[in-house]
């Protein structure tokens, strides 16, 4: 029971995190592509409850930033201009879940843009870009993991159940795929295609590539489970009742693989998000101006950004809860992965 509660705990965390990304339009204060060329690389604004005279304000506020004297990229707080944080404000147009047109945002500031995670080279709000970018990256990770696990299930079940030369062939193929240096394979595959592909094509390309590369490990795990499951007495017994192969697979053998598959999926999602980030970081993923988590970090390729603008690392830090959520869920599922453990 403890395990089950831990699993639901991790699921709640993950659902909450994904909701932030799914309803990015509402949670993000601005449109992710909206530029503010006058303020590139603005550091994150700090939220205050106490003003510079020591008065307490129930409503948190930020001070507007201005360029420090004699500097071209150092900002300092302009204590004469407080920007109170307003909740449920009307702002940029967006479509909730891509369907409902809306202008409602969780928070914002009047007459002035508020940058809680700073801005990038074009003065775009990093927080908004992070939330919108999560849509691309998380969806690519989830879809890629789904494709991979499905492929792994088919290959592993076929190899384990039918055995013989099919097993040998499929498992040697799996070993080959495990041995491939997949990052360079991704480059090669990506290099075959025209450089300028649309965001949607690039997205599905990434998913397809991830799915094609990752199936070997789940396939081997599924094969192991199927091999042991098909020798169990109740599978024999069902065969004795006149069950066909299809029935045995559907009713007895494949259900036994479910926990292994779920565990694998949970572990694969962060791996695939990282793979998407790697591709986008290198400029081979989803193209600008569409935000993705890899795109967000790609400005770190420039040395000046790397050493001068520390907040450009922040997206990598905020991703951690997502990864930890998936890995925590994965390890809890693995605890329960014993396919036929007697449940008490």
């Amino acid at each position: 029971m403890r395990g089950r509660r831990a699993i639901s705990g991790w699921l709640v965390v993950l659902v909450a995190l994904h909701a932030c990304v799914l309803f990015a339009g509402f949670f993000a204060p601005y449109d992710p592509t909206e530029q503010d060329r006058g303020r590139p690389y603005l550091p994150p604004m700090r939220l205050h409850f106490l003003d510079n005279r020591g008065h307490f304000h129930a409503r948190p506020f930020a001070y507007a930033l201005k360029l420090a004297e004699g500097s071209f990229d150092q900002y300092e707080e302009d204590t004469r201009r407080a920007l109170p944080l307003k909740f449920m404000v009307r702002g940029a147009n967006y479509r909730l879940l891509g369907l409902l047109p809306s202008r409602l945002h969780l928070f914002g500031a009047e007459n002035e843009r508020i940058y809680l995670l700073g801005s990038d080279a074009y003065g775009r709000d990093q927080l908004s870009r992070f939330l919108y970018g999560g849509r691309v990256s998380l969806f690519a990770g989830l879809l890629g993991a789904g494709v991979t696990v499905l492929l792994g299930l088919c290959v592993g079940a076929a190899a384990g159940y039918y055995g013989g030369w099919r097993d040998d062939l499929l498992m040697r193929l799996a070993e080959l795929f495990l041995a491939l240096p997949w990052l360079y394979l991704l480059f090669a595959l990506r290099a075959f295609l025209p450089l300028a592909v649309g965001p949607l094509e690039a997205f599905f390309l990434i998913v397809a590539v991830l799915g094609a590369v990752g199936w070997a490990r789940p396939a081997r795990l599924v094969r192991g489970v199927v091999l042991s499951a098909k020798e169990r007495d109740f599978v024999r017994a069902a065969r004795g009742f006149g069950a066909t192969d299809g029935y045995l697979l559907r009713r007895h053998i494949l259900p036994a693989t479910s926990s292994v598959l779920l565990t694998q999926a949970a572990i694969l999602v962060p791996q695939f998000i990282l793979a998407e980030m790697t591709l986008s970081f290198l400029g081979l993923g989803v193209p600008e101006p569409v935000p993705s988590w890899g795109n967000l970090l790609s400005s770190l390729q420039q040395y000046s950004v790397l050493v001068s603008y520390w907040w450009m690392y922040l997206p990598a830090l905020i991703m951690l809860p997502f990864f930890l959520g998936y890995l925590g869920l994965g390890s809890e599922l693995q605890e329960r992965a014993e396919p036929y453990k007697i449940e008490r």
Partner: peptide, 11 residues
């Protein structure tokens, strides 16, 4: 079968 625990799908 000999082992009745193994001859039924435990779920």
């Amino acid at each position: 079968f000999q082992d009745p625990a193994n001859s039924f799908n435990p779920r």
